[in-house]
Nucleic acid binder design. Structure first.
Lengths: 208, 208
DNA sequence: CGACACATGTAACACGTTACATGATTTG
DNA sequence: CAAATCATGTAACGTGTTACATGTGTCG
């Protein structure tokens, strides 16, 4: 795997590093921890747990309540625990930093670059449209963050522990949107500086 | 497909909108158009073309040179052409803007949020490390852009048409890295403001 | 009882990566 | 000739999404 998406697999591992849990619970925890913006498919949880178990990064353990002598709940809950190998893999993930390997494909960037294949004007049209939409989304997100912070201030004296994740997520979305907007401005500047030819490649793309 | 990665499928379609091409050529064009930072697996090109053809967004056409009466080249090249339905799908893609649907999972964000599950200090450690690495990468990327622009200025009078893609990509990478750095700073500020408890949830995560 | 949440799973498919197989052409 | 490049494909696997199947517990 060169640029593998691994944030579910290792995310579940991080949760299991805090406590033994079962699949359904992991789904809920994952969504809570990530501020509710990344819904996690329950089917994927089970298949990911299967692979983690196969790779000996987690292991199934006894139901903690039943092990303590309580009556079986009837609901079947398969508890998983992280292993030593799992803790190592998790520590590696936390220490890893994005290298110079190919960055993940980005939809916005791809759209502009490939619109550019159809000529400067097509690219400019895409840039303009995306900027308009992003500007609106940014306003909405800033308003959302403001409400979120106000609610947190009312609820407790300081920032409640449970809300920090949501705030970090909102921060990230806003910061990203701002960056995308700045980049779109840069794009426009570079594109208008191009000679006003309709095709990005004067000779056409059919030069094989 | 809720949050489908579609930048290859529709990227190939965008290239075919410019000229009929065959698989191997599409791979090369895609990589050139995207500044060489997104290597495209040739196997994926063929399977994606199969799906595009099945969905009637492209169709195989005669070899243009042979159709013009030239001698067959011996090398078998399967040329594809975009269809009307394909052009519609492409136009839709260009017009689409990212809505409020779940944003794509981001590795950096995921890492910080799930490190936070292990307590404030673990999250702070991840933030610090990532920031250090990103700062270095940013310096290198800025230097790269400077060299790129200098080379372009020497090569021609103005910005050469072929280099614009590379510049847009570098802009995007730098802008993204700067945004990530700003976000990491925000994270640290919010985290240090938290009470200095080791666990994100005072009661522990095992509260089921 | 009936609806809904809890809980586990399977099947089918799309997309992405790596590795392998198979030839033809070009080039040193 | 040998090696690299051109050109098409397949197989296997990981990951992500949707839909379906199958039960138990709780609550109105």
């Amino acid at each position: 795997m060169h640029t593998a998406d691994v944030s579910v697999r290792l995310g579940l591992l991080a949760l299991l590093d805090q406590a033994d849990m079962y699949g359904y619970q992991l789904k809920a925890e994952y969504e809570t921890r990530t501020g509710g913006v990344w819904p996690l498919n329950i089917g994927q949880v089970y298949s990911t747990l299967d692979r983690l178990e196969r790779d000996r990064l987690v292991a199934t353990v006894d139901h903690p309540a039943e092990a303590a002598g309580e009556a079986p709940s009837g609901r079947e809950q398969k508890y998983y625990a992280i292993t030593k190998a799992g803790r190592n893999a998790l520590a590696e993930w936390f220490e890893e930093t994005a290298g110079d390997d190919p960055p993940p494909r980005d939809e916005l960037l791809a759209k502009v670059l490939l619109a550019l294949a159809g000529g400067r004007d097509q690219a400019l049209a895409v840039v303009t449209r995306q900027r308009t939409a992003l500007t609106g989304a940014l306003v909405a997100r800033r308003r959302g963050l403001r409400d979120q912070l106000r609610a947190a201030a009312q609820a407790g004296g300081g920032t409640a522990d449970n809300d920090i994740a949501g705030e970090l997520v909102t921060d990230a979305l806003i910061t990203r949107a701002e960056a995308d907007l700045r980049w779109l401005d840069l794009c426009e500047a570079r594109l208008v500086r191009l000679a006003a030819n309709g095709q990005a490649r004067p000779g056409g793309a059919g030069d094989h």
